[in-house]
Computed example of a mutant assay.
Amino acid sequence: MSKQSLPVVDLQAVACCSPIAVRPMDAEQAAVVAPMFKALGDPIRLRLMSMIASVPEICVCDLTPAFDVSGPTISHHLKVLRETGLVDAERRGTWVWYRVRPEVFRQLGALLDVPAATSADA
């Protein structure tokens, strides 16, 4: 896994993209969306995202014990999810609470929407 940091994503840029089944993305659009998919391409981050998305919000104190990696490693993965715009975080006292950004996932879902095959396609 590369140690380079992922760029912070312009969330408005994701909304600009038509579904990939409608027309091919240009290089600029792909560069905007790719960091989100890269962030989700890591098994730990994908599990974290699943845990965060399954509840309205969750404390980092509830996320860390679910993994066999150190707290700083979990913090790094959560930072990647924040920087790519997939989650929001709010510090409350000594703990940080995370919640999914549903509008981003709706946009990513729309981007991946492929129409059902018609009878002529089958």
Rank of each mutant, 00 (worst) to 15 (best):
M1G: 15
M1T: 10
Q4T: 06
Q4C: 00
Q4I: 03
L6I: 07
V9S: 10
D10I: 03
D10C: 01
L11H: 08
L11R: 14
Q12L: 06
V14T: 13
A15W: 02
C17Y: 03
P24C: 00
E28F: 00
F37W: 10
K38Y: 06
L40R: 11
G41L: 01
I44L: 10
R45D: 06
L46W: 06
L48K: 11
S50I: 03
S50N: 04
M51R: 11
I52N: 08
S54D: 14
E57L: 00
C59K: 14
C61Y: 13
C61I: 02
C61R: 15
C61W: 11
D62C: 02
P65V: 05
A66H: 15
A66D: 09
V69T: 14
I74W: 13
I74D: 04
S75T: 05
H77I: 05
L86I: 05
L86F: 07
D88E: 15
A89W: 11
R91K: 15
R91S: 01
G93Q: 06
G93P: 04
W97V: 10
R101N: 04
R101L: 01
F105H: 03
R106W: 00
G109V: 01
G109N: 14
A110W: 04
L111F: 14
L112P: 08
D113S: 07
P115Q: 07
A117L: 13
T118E: 12
D121K: 12
